[in-house]
């Protein structure tokens, strides 16, 4: 704000307090992450003795060596990548197929169809009935169980519909005169013109798939189909009991490396987090935009 040129001493004191205070808040938000990174890169003896804080002590990559050479981690990683890639593609396709017709204000079925969608944002069947439906479709222990039941997010559908509504009608009309059908209009006009929105939604969906933990926990029990988040959660939920905590990684291997679960767990965390961190700069920018656009419409 341009008007705050002359500041009273009180205001100056407040500004200083605010800058320092928010800096401290930011520091402590990041602290646990940096600590985990440091632990993952440290010697396990140093970690056990509590000497690792924000900087790695006794540089050591054995945790990563164990994790990255573990076939179970590899399987979970491949499954997660697969589910994220295929899932996001299906998400975008389905969301576009819903958003485009519903963005046409003269669509006869528009209002009832929107109502049908909005109702599901307020009431849902709950964990058990959903589980039984997924089960009755024979999706249990299939990677598709992590994709099909999550094919559309109603919130994203409405966001994209709002975006499509902004595309000028005249473009559509002239395309129609040139003989284009609705599919051509969707794929040749609407989607190319909405690429920023589509990119945003892809990130929304992809991060959602990557982080999806509950669905995998519920629908997948076969280790060959399992995803990273559940693999990671095994280190967490079974804490304090070394035996189960590392059940998916051969014990001898860990003993040989002389690793304590802390180092190993930290290494798994970093490997799971890394792909999100790579896209985070974009994600953050787009997400914020998406939420702001969405909320201002309301």
């Amino acid at each position: 704000m341009s008007l705050q040129t002359r500041r009273t001493p009180g205001e100056k004191a407040f500004d200083l307090f605010n800058v320092v205070g928010l800096g401290i808040v930011g520091f402590f938000t990041l602290y646990p992450f940096v600590n985990t990174l440091a632990v993952s890169l440290s010697d396990s003896m140093m970690v056990a003795s509590g000497r690792v804080n924000l900087i790695p002590v006794g540089w050591n990559l054995d945790g990563y060596r164990v994790v990255l050479s573990s076939p179970v981690f590899y399987t979970a990683f491949v499954n997660t990548v697969l589910v994220t890639a295929v899932g996001t593609t299906i998400n975008i396709l389905m969301t576009c197929l819903g958003a485009y017709p519903l963005s046409r204000k003269d669509l006869a079925i528009r209002v009832p169809f929107m109502m049908m969608i909005v109702i599901t944002m307020f009431i849902a069947g709950g964990m058990i009935p959903t589980y039984l439906v997924v089960r009755s479709f024979g999706l249990l222990n299939k990677r598709l169980a992590l994709i099909i039941p999550l094919a559309i997010n109603s919130w994203n559908l409405i966001l994209l519909r709002n975006f499509f509504q902004e595309v000028p009608m005249s473009l559509e009309e002239s395309a129609k005169i040139d003989g284009a059908n609705e599919f051509t209009i969707l794929f040749r006009i609407m989607i190319p013109l909405s690429l920023p929105a589509i990119a945003t939604l892809s990130l929304f969906y992809a991060v959602g798939h990557w982080n999806n933990f509950r669905t995998a926990l519920m629908y997948i029990t076969d280790p060959r189909k399992q995803v990273l988040q559940v693999f990671l959660s095994q280190f967490v939920v079974a804490r304090e009991s070394m035996g189960t905590a590392t059940s998916t990684i051969p014990d001898e291997e860990i003993e040989r490396m002389n690793l304590i679960p802390d180092t190993l767990r930290a290494a798994v965390v970093v490997c799971t987090v890394a792909p999100i961190l790579v896209v985070y700069p974009w994600v953050q920018r787009y997400f914020v935009k998406g939420v702001i656009v969405g909320s201002l419409k309301g």
């Binding site: 938000t29 990041l30 646990p32 992450f33 600590n35 985990t36 632990v39 991060v207 982080n211 999806n212 933990f213 988040q229 559940v230 990671l232 959660s233 280190f235 967490v236 804490r239 802390d262 767990r265 930290a266 798994v268 965390v269 799971t272 987090v273 999100i276 985070y280 994600v283 953050q284």
Partner: peptide, 16 residues
């Protein structure tokens, strides 16, 4: 940042 990580990730960090 923490919003973009699942509870499996955040939980592991908290526990460490």
């Amino acid at each position: 940042l923490p919003h973009f990580f699942s509870w499996a990730i955040c939980g592991a960090i908290v526990i460490s």
